[in-house]
Design a protein around this nucleic acid. Structure first.
Length: 428
RNA sequence: GUACCUGUAGCUCAGGUGGUUAGAGCGCCUGACUGUGGAUCAGGAGGCCGAGGGUUCAAGUCCCUCCAGGUACCCCA
C-alpha cells in the first residue's frame, strides 16, 4: 500500500535550514531594534471574530471582501484567521481596560493569513513583524515608526531603499472628500461600472481601486484628494517631510499610495528595495490610524504602526555577506571510533555543550576519515579524537584543526582541560 | 479570480519529430591512504520522470483533469 502523499497547503511555506535560520535572524534583528526604541512584545490570537477585521479594515477593502480565511466554529460563530496584526492588538488593549492616556509601544512577530493567488513574495500564510505606538498624535511619533522600519532594513544590509509616503488626511477630511467624490460619481453615474456604483454608496474612495479602464479615464477628471485636505492636515504632512529630511531618510511622495485599509489617517508609508522589479517589492507598509481605537469602543486614541513581510525581506537580503550566520562556526568536533568510544564521547560532548561550547559529534559510527571531514566542513576549531587505543590508555587526542597540532590529554578531566583552553583563547 | 509558462535523483538541470535496463554536475557514502581533515582518482547508493486517467504495439516525451510553483493583471507584506 502506497502511503498517501501529503503536501503543504497552497501558498504556505516549510522553512527548512538554512531558510529557517535566515528567518530567525531577521526576527532577532527586529526584536533587538524594537527594544532599543522601547517597544515591548505583545502576542494576540491568530484568529479573531470576523467582525473585528471587517469593521477595522472596511467591508469594501480587498482584504476583507475577498482575502479572509473565514470559518464558523462549532457553535456557529464566524471566526477569521488574522490577515493583519493591528486589530488584535487594539482589541486586546481595550478588552483589558488599558489606560490609553499613556504612551504605549508594542511589537509583534507572527503569521498573517490572506487568501490570494500565491506568487513569489506573496503567500497565504506569511510572517509579519509589526509594531504600534498608541497614544501620541505627534508627527514625531510617525517619524519614529518610519525610522524603525528603515533602520530595521538597513541593519539587515538593505540600504538601497525607496521610502514612499503620502497623507490621506484626517477622518473629517476623508468624510468630506468622500462626499465630494460621491457627488462627482453621481454626476457622471452612467459612465461608471456597477461595481463603482456600489463603491459610491459605501466607500467612494475605493473607486480608485477599480480595474475597469473606462472608470480610470473618468477618474482623471475627479477632484483630487490633496485639494480637499484641511490646512492642518497639509501642515502636518509638511512637518513629516521636514522631519524625515532632518533624519536623512530619503522619500518620495506618491499621491496614489492609499493602502488597502480603511482605518488609515494622515501619514501612510511603504518601503521597498530599489531595482527589485516585480509587483511584490513592498517590504513593509503602515500608517497612522487615529480612529480605530474609538471605532472598537475604546477611548478615542491616536496611533501609528507598520507591518513588515519577513519572507520578502529574507528574499531581498544578500546572504552571501552573512555566511557566518547561516553556518555558525563549531568549537569542537568529537571523533569517536567504535561503540565504546561513542558512549564515552556523548557524555563529554554534552558536558561541553552545557558549558557553552558548540560541539558536534557523529552518531552513525562513520569512519575516522569521514568524521574528521565533518569537523573540517563545520570549521571546528579543535577535535577530540577518541578511539579504542586512547580509551585503553585513558587519554584522548586534542587536535587543533588549523595547525594540525595535536597532544594527548588525560581522559579524566578532559572537559575541564578543553574548557580551560577555550577560555584562555577567548580572553586574548 | 483570468491568461501564459513550468513540475525529471537531496540540490541545479540535460533528456530533437514517442522506441531497448532514464543521464550529468554538486552533495552524500566507500576505497586508493588497516586510525588523521579542504585536493585528485575510482566506485556506490539514491528516481512509480508532480498525481490520476486516456491515445498507442510502445509515453519522461502526445491529449485531458487535478495538484503545486512561477510570470502578467490585481492586490498587497
Amino acid at each position: 500500500m502506497m502511503a498517501k502523499k501529503y503536501q503543504a497547503p497552497r501558498g504556505t511555506i516549510d522553512y527548512l535550514p538554512p531558510e529557517s535560520v535566515k528567518q530567525l535572524h531577521v526576527e532577532a534583528v527586529f526584536r533587538d531594534l524594537c527594544e532599543n526604541y522601547g517597544y515591548q512584545p505583545i502576542r494576540t490570537p491568530m484568529f479573531e471574530t470576523t467582525e473585528l477585521f471587517a469593521r477595522g479594515a472596511g467591508e469594501s477593502s480587498d482584504i476583507v471582501s475577498k482575502e479572509m480565511y473565514t470559518f464558523d466554529d462549532k457553535k456557529g460563530r464566524s471566526m477569521t484567521l488574522r490577515p493583519e496584526g493591528t486589530p488584535g492588538v487594539v482589541r486586546a488593549l481595550i478588552e483589558m481596560g488599558w489606560n490609553f492616556a499613556q504612551q504605549t509601544r508594542l511589537y509583534y512577530i507572527g503569521s498573517m493569513f490572506r487568501y490570494q493567488r500565491p506568487q513569489k513574495g506573496r503567500y497565504r500564510e506569511h510572517t509579519q513583524a509589526g509594531l504600534e505606538i498608541i497614544g501620541p498624535d505627534s508627527v514625531t511619533a510617525d517619524v519614529e515608526v518610519i525610522s524603525i522600519g528603515v533602520n530595521f532594513l538597513i541593519a539587515l544590509g538593505l540600504d538601497d531603499l525607496k521610502v514612499v509616503i503620502n497623507t490621506v488626511g484626517s477622518v473629517e477630511d476623508r468624510t468630506r472628500y468622500n462626499e465630494i467624490l460621491k457627488v462627482f460619481i453621481d454626476e457622471r453615474h452612467d459612465e461608471f461600472c456597477p461595481d463603482c456604483h456600489f463603491r459610491a454608496e459605501h466607500n467612494p474612495m475605493r473607486v480608485f481601486d477599480c480595474k475597469v479602464p473606462e472608470c480610470h479615464e473618468i477618474l482623471n477628471d475627479a477632484p483630487g484628494m490633496f485639494d480637499t485636505l484641511s490646512k492642518e492636515s497639509l501642515d502636518r504632512f509638511e512637518t513629516l517631510k521636514e522631519l524625515l529630511e532632518a533624519e536623512e531618510i530619503e522619500y518620495e511622495v506618491d499621491p496614489k499610495l492609499v493602502r488597502g485599509l480603511d482605518y488609515y489617517t494622515h501619514s501612510v508609508f511603504e518601503v521597498m528595495v530599489r531595482g527589485e522589479e516585480g509587483q511584490q517589492s513592498s517590504l513593509m507598509g503602515g500608517g497612522r490610524y487615529d480612529s480605530l481605537v474609538e471605532l472598537y469602543g475604546g477611548q478615542p486614541t491616536p496611533a501609528m504602526g507598520f507591518g513588515a513581510g519577513l519572507e520578502r525581506i529574507v528574499e531581498a537580503i544578500d546572504w552571501e555577506d552573512l555566511e557566518e550566520i547561516v553556518n555558525p562556526e563549531c568549537d569542537i568536533a568529537i571523533v569517536a571510533l567504535g561503540e565504546q568510544a561513542q558512549r564515552v564521547a556523548v557524555t563529554i560532548a554534552d558536558k561541553l555543550r552545557v558549558a557553552g561550547l558548540m560541539v558536534h559529534m557523529d552518531h552513525r559510527g562513520s569512519s575516522f576519515k569521514n568524521q574528521l571531514g565533518q569537523a573540517n566542513t563545520l570549521k571546528a576549531a579543535a577535535t577530540i579524537i577518541l578511539g579504542e587505543n586512547e580509551l585503553e590508555g585513558g587519554i584522548v587526542i586534542l587536535k587543533e584543526m588549523e595547525s594540525g597540532e595535536q597532544e594527548n590529554v588525560p581522559l579524566d578531566g578532559v572537559v575541564e582541560t578543553v574548557l580551560q583552553a577555550f577560555s584562555t583563547d577567548s580572553e586574548d
